[in-house]
Simulated assay, not measured.
Amino acid sequence: MSNLTRFNPFSDIMRAAPFGRLDEFFEDLDRFPMLKSLEAAPRIKMDVVEGENAYTVHAEIPGAKKEDIKVSIEGHMVTISAEVKKVKEHKEGDRVVQSERYYGRESRSFSLGQDIDEDKANAHYDNGVLELTLPVRAGSRAGKTLAIQ
């Protein structure tokens, strides 16, 4: 009878870590459940409300300009993307004391229960909030549920 051992190509690196074994460090994180529940929050926060004939979406995109926001619709998939540019300078007289710049692209995709009528969809952006009115395509149905035998 032979003993099988699972090969780990990083085992030598883990043992040679300067502060002890790295795998033990990550196992210790299990003792802190609050760290496991931390997830990256989406930068574009949204509310989706389903009406009888349309979906209404409110998406917060602070700092974006109307020209830098794009919404694409393919069937029941909706993608909101925005390019955010922030430039902040603090001057004392003619000297720049502090300058901060941020350029980034943010995107969020989600699917709805029914196909959207792209021709009747409407978008309005005001004070950092994008409002989408997404009418359901006529004749569109939610998916079919199969009976399991």
Results as ranks from 00 to 15, higher is better:
Phe19Arg: 09
Val87Met: 11
Ala123Lys: 12
Gly63Ile: 08
His90Lys: 13
Leu22Lys: 02
Ala121Asn: 01
Met77Gly: 07
Ala16Thr: 03
Asp30Met: 09
Thr133Asp: 08
Asn122Arg: 11
Asn3Arg: 10
Gly113His: 04
Glu24Pro: 00
Ala64Thr: 01
Ser81Asn: 10
Asp28Tyr: 12
Ser37Gly: 11
Thr145Cys: 04
Asp47Cys: 04
Lys70Thr: 10
Ala17Gly: 11
Leu132Phe: 02
Met46Lys: 15
Asp94Arg: 11
Lys86Thr: 13
Val78Phe: 04
Val136Cys: 06
Gly51Gln: 08
Ile148Tyr: 09
Gly113Ala: 15
Leu38Met: 12
Leu29Glu: 09
Thr133Tyr: 05
Ile44Pro: 13
Ala41Ser: 14
Ala40Met: 08
Gly104Phe: 09
Pro9Arg: 06
His76Gln: 11
Glu106Phe: 15
Arg105Glu: 14
Ile116Pro: 02
Ala17Met: 10
Val57Arg: 02
Arg101Glu: 14
Pro18Arg: 05
Val96Tyr: 04
Lys120Trp: 03
Met34Thr: 12
His90Phe: 12
Lys66Thr: 03
Glu52Gln: 12
Tyr103Asn: 13
Leu22Gly: 10
Ser140Leu: 07
His76Ala: 13
Glu39Pro: 00
Ser111Trp: 14
Asn3Lys: 13
Glu89Gly: 00
Gln149Tyr: 00
Arg15Thr: 08
His58Ile: 10
Asn8Ser: 09
Ala123Phe: 13
Lys86Arg: 14
